[in-house]
Amino acid sequence: MKPRHAPPLNALRAFETAARCLSFQKAAAQLFVTPAAVSHQVKRLEDHLGTTLFERGHRTVTLTPEGAALAASLSGIFGMLDLALDRASSAATAELRVSTLESFAAKWLAPRLHRFHARHPDIQVRIVTSDQLADVGRDGVDIAVRYGPGTGSGGDADPLMDAPVFPVCAPGTVRMDGRPLASPADLAHVTLIHDQSAEGRPGVPDWAAWLAFAGVSTERADVGPVYPSIYLAQEAAIHGHGVALGVGPLVEDDLRQGRLIRPFQAQLPNAYAFWTIRPAAGRKEEATDAFHRWLEVESGASQTLRRFSTAVP
């Protein structure tokens, strides 16, 4: 076999980013280059390998089988490379790569992270958002927080917080006829905001489950706008666009700050919870353990789960 020179690192990086985003434009934004530059680098790699990595459509790209296989390998390689370079760049500051959902990062972690920095100024936390199953060994992250049934690959999963579900809305939200919300039955006269977190996930409450639990009609349980994430559904509720189903830890700060209220106290238990995933035994580091201990302290101080009754009003 004829020897093959290693492909240019820039071409590999451009391809891996484009494969992860499934968009040359989004990849260009992450790499701070133009979409044309990403396309050029991907074509350069395809020419080097002698195979097609993307099927290009009108404003869309999809991975070929060869491209998907290469992307799966490169994702872990670049994650580990980034982690190695980050750790080598500064002996004085430990960088901790934390992978979590965008909703959790924005609604629970960000309002509290300054307290970790105050206690551990020598640890620089880098947040990486993803809703994929975490593999801390392959993905090049030190610790992950996920919303799920408690399974994770490549590490040890520990329970962090339960995630009860209950309605939330902006203060002053009223029925379509202008009357205030007085009972769960009034939800038949407001916009119900949905998110995709419960779709295809047995035991994760949706509007039909909550309305049935509250003893009212489920006829309109599927009516209303659907958002791709809990975070966006919650933001829609904050802006007064209707009533959403809040997930306990993710609405706690908005309830405390008065951006959201609970019109009714009934809440449903959730088969999904928040979990931390760390590397398997023997690969844990001091910074990872410090962050994990801090997460446990912060989750233990959470008031959302203790403040409210589960009784139907």
Rank of each mutant, 00 (worst) to 15 (best):
H58P: 03
T218V: 13
S23M: 03
W207Q: 11
A11E: 00
Q196Y: 00
R119V: 02
A273H: 10
E102V: 12
E235W: 06
A221G: 04
T129I: 10
L70E: 07
L192S: 11
H120W: 05
A208M: 00
C21V: 11
V204M: 05
L70T: 11
L85P: 10
I193A: 11
F264H: 14
A14Y: 00
T129H: 09
I230S: 08
E298P: 02
D142L: 05
V168E: 00
L70P: 04
A88L: 12
R259F: 10
A163L: 01
A37P: 01
L295D: 08
A182I: 09
D206F: 05
W207C: 08
A71R: 06
Q267R: 15
E219F: 12
F264Q: 14
T62F: 06
I143K: 03
C21T: 12
T93Y: 09
T310W: 04
I238K: 15
G282M: 01
D289M: 12
G224P: 11
I77E: 13
S183N: 08
H58R: 14
E286H: 10
T64N: 02
Q257C: 12
A280E: 10
S130C: 04
E252K: 02
R175F: 07
E219H: 14
A233L: 02
N10V: 03
A37Y: 10
H239V: 03
L113T: 12
I277T: 08
I123Y: 02
I123G: 00
R126P: 01
V223K: 03
S153Y: 13
E46R: 00
E286M: 04
K284E: 04
G258L: 02
L63Y: 12
S89L: 14
R307K: 08
A11I: 00
H114W: 12
A6K: 06
T62R: 14
I77L: 15
P205Q: 06
G242P: 04
R138T: 11
A188F: 04
L260M: 07
A163I: 02
A118Y: 05
R59C: 01
P180K: 10
T276W: 04
E219W: 10
S302A: 11
Q41C: 03
V204S: 06
T310F: 01
P171D: 08
S90V: 00
K26Q: 09
W108Q: 15
P164V: 11
A214Q: 05
H189L: 06
L211T: 05
A92N: 09
L22M: 03
A182P: 06
S103L: 13
N270A: 14
E286A: 12
